[in-house]
């Protein structure tokens, strides 16, 4: 019972980190309808910015975290400006955007390999990881609880931004139909920059937590594949879907690791993807009927 509760908490905590990443990815997908493979790069940028900010400006997680979020948001918006906008403005073919995003993900990852080196680094101990006794049933790490709380805060913030603000309204309109939103007077380029900025900020939060969990290295971004799968399980382009999908994925992964074999956890993720596509291809919350060919 104790182990089960522990794995449950681990799973939800991991799932909430995936959710931060998957929501950003899904947000971009809902507007531009392509998988931004450079999203993993944003995580790495967030992690490394936080690492260097902490190292050079004293171990203050507030400063480091803020700088990491800001830098990653700007990097994400810049990525869109440099690599995607020229393609977007010329053609409608999503394949070109996919290839460009693959290129950007390779560039970001290898920029870190070449300049900083592929060494594994641990963030300075600014985020508490000491064990916490929970309701007398189980012991868990303070870090797990913290990552859940932070994820909830950021996801609520995003929800408020999307539901209450004017730009949020524009994002919702663009998710329905980008072209029509543009014709109604929404500054589409500005909107897409904002979407990428928000996605980058969320990815940075995920990146900081992932680099505490798994240490920091340039290939850390490869973990976004799980966020992509989570987004598909929840329904591509749907934000609540991305959150629920991430939680399911985190739980499935941790329960497999805890009770079957930790080597099988990635296989479980992939099987979950295939099962979703076979049984309910729209995912749990996919609203629009998918185009089936």
């Amino acid at each position: 019972m104790g182990t089960f509760a522990q794995q449950l908490i681990n799973g939800i905590s991991l799932g909430s980190v995936y959710a931060l990443i998957a929501v950003g990815y899904s947000l971009v997908y809902s507007i531009l309808l392509f998988s931004n493979f450079a999203h993993g790069g944003f995580i790495v940028i967030g992690g490394y910015t936080c690492y260097y900010a902490l190292r050079s400006m004293g171990n203050n997680i507030w400063v480091g975290g803020f700088l990491a979020l800001l830098a990653t948001g700007i990097a994400a918006a810049l990525t869109e400006r440099i690599a995607y906008r020229p393609i977007r403005e010329r053609t409608d073919i999503k394949l070109y955007l996919l290839i460009a995003s693959l290129g950007m993900s390779i560039v970001i990852e290898n920029l870190f390999v070449v300049t900083i080196g592929g060494r594994f680094r641990a963030l300075p101990p600014v985020i508490p990881t000491n064990p916490v006794r929970l309701f007398g049933i189980t012991t868990t790490s303070a870090f797990d609880l913290l990552s859940m709380v932070v994820a909830v805060i950021f996801l609520t913030g995003l929800q408020l931004f999307i539901k209450k603000s004017k730009w949020g309204l524009a994002i919702r309109a663009a998710a329905c139909d980008l072209r029509t939103a543009g014709l109604m007077g929404v500054n589409v380029n500005m909107l897409i920059s904002i979407v990428f900025f928000v996605a980058g900020v969320l990815a940075a939060v995920g990146g900081i937590f992932l680099s505490v969990r798994y240490t920091l290295y340039p290939q850390l971004g490869a973990i976004t594949i799980k966020a992509f799968v989570a987004a598909v399980v929840g329904g591509l382009g749907s934000l609540p879907g991305a959150v629920v999908g991430s939680l399911i994925l985190g739980l499935a992964e941790m329960l497999t690791a805890g009770f079957i074999s930790s080597q099988l956890r990635d296989l479980v993720v992939f099987s979950l993807l295939v099962i979703t596509l076979l049984v309910k291809p729209t995912g749990l919350f996919g609203k629009e009927p998918l185009e089936k060919v």
């Binding site: 998988s35 999503k94 291809p281 998918l290 185009e291 089936k292 060919v293």
Partner: peptide, 11 residues
Amino acid sequence: LKLMGDYYAIA
């Protein structure tokens, strides 16, 4: 591949 979208890329 029966679905349009990036499903195969992710898979």
